[in-house]
């Protein structure tokens, strides 16, 4: 498929996307410092680890290699 859209259109689109990023970032209100959020995220990984550990599996069960039932 031939795509020959104008450079003007491309430049306008890139500029629009770039300018849209700043206000979006400003609207986000983190409930914690980046370090605190990282700690929370790592704790979530640990909680998932613990939950998986509690689930007992027969040794013969292999990882899924098909992803539809």
């Amino acid at each position: 498929m031939a795509i020959d859209l104008s450079r003007r259109e491309l430049a306008a689109a890139l500029a629009a996307l770039a300018s849209a990023a700043a206000p979006a970032a400003a609207q986000t209100t983190p409930t914690g410092t980046p370090a605190e959020l990282l700690t929370q995220a790592k704790q979530a990984v640990e909680r998932n680890h613990d939950a998986l550990q509690r689930f007992k599996l027969d040794r013969a069960v292999e990882p899924a290699t098909r992803y539809e039932a």
Binding site: T28, P34, A41
Partner: peptide, 12 residues
Amino acid sequence: ADAKQIAGLKAT
């Protein structure tokens, strides 16, 4: 944009 997402990606 999302601080939780940034932290979550790092924690992966």
